[in-house]
Amino acid sequence: MKQLQREDIHSLAKHSQLSGEQVEQALQQHVYQDKKSWADFLRISLLVLGIGFLTSGLVFFFAYNWADLPKFGKLAIVQGLLLLVSLLAIYPKFSTLTRQLLLSSAAVLVGLLFAVFGQIYQTGADAYDFFLAWTLFIVLWTVISDFPPLWLFFIGLLNITFYLYVDQVARHWEETLVFSILFVLNLLPLVFAELWNIQRRKQVIPQYFINMMALAALTFATIGNLHYILTGHTEAPLLPGISLAVYALGIGFGLRTKSIFYLASISLSIIIITTGLIVENIQSEFGILLASIFVLLSISAVIYYILQLLKHPGYETRK
């Protein structure tokens, strides 16, 4: 028996004489959360809130207590906490989710430890050194955690590390080059995730992780290409070529896996870049008007193409 979706019930109600109570009952039965879902929700919420508030409290405690604590005391407390949380993360009687959250908490505490160390010894290191060390020291945990939110946190740290490196050390690097590297940095986990899912023949790595990485990569590619167009020169002349190749592969992959997400998001990026090209090359009122008309027509064309694809079986938006 098919479990009815919300849209199915709405369609049934629209094309029948079902009463409001009957529709409500159907929604209660098939769509709304049941007792088990609420129990899971309560359990996970309490766990996440508990660990989240405790970790934040610890961070605030160390932010306050600097001057009064001896150096040894500061380091001992943080390292002790890190050790405790790490050990709890491998305690077998906890559920998998609990252990993953504890490991994530430990990953945050690694950053706290380095912050404490840097504050005490005033090493004079740049901020990017701090983030680089933090990133490197949680690589192993990230790999073994099998926990996508921690992967996202790790990739976020990677991006911050790179950005700070450019800001503090490689100041002479030009923006297009920076965005090119950020594009590749976020593209690699995406490619890996898709290949891993293909290799395992099922959705092992969740779609929200893949979608977020795709959006991040596309954003950096779009900004990098726009910057190249607007400045006219770059230290990364390969960016347009690489973007084009990756976009072509992305569209091909989207068609092969019958996913609308890649088709829509890559198309939007191409439209934005082309609009920038038009505005930059036709620097007049006509250029702006042409850009406006181009956006209108190209978006309509993309939507038309997607609608045609949706007529074929198997095409649906990846969730």
């Binding site: 849209e7 609308i260 997400f261 088709l263 829509a264 998001s265 198309s267 939007l268 439209i271 934005i272 609009t275 009122e285 702006i288 008007l289 850009a291 406006s292 008309i293 956006v295 209108l296 190209s298 978006i299 309509s300 993309v302 939507i303 997607i306 609608l307 949706l310 095409y315 649906e316 938006t317």
Partner: peptide
Amino acid sequence: AKQKSLPIKILSIFGGLISSASFVGF
């Protein structure tokens, strides 16, 4: 499938906003 496609809705809204902003600029 067409009605619940979020990418189509986002494309429509984005496209409309960019296009109208360009047109007002013109």
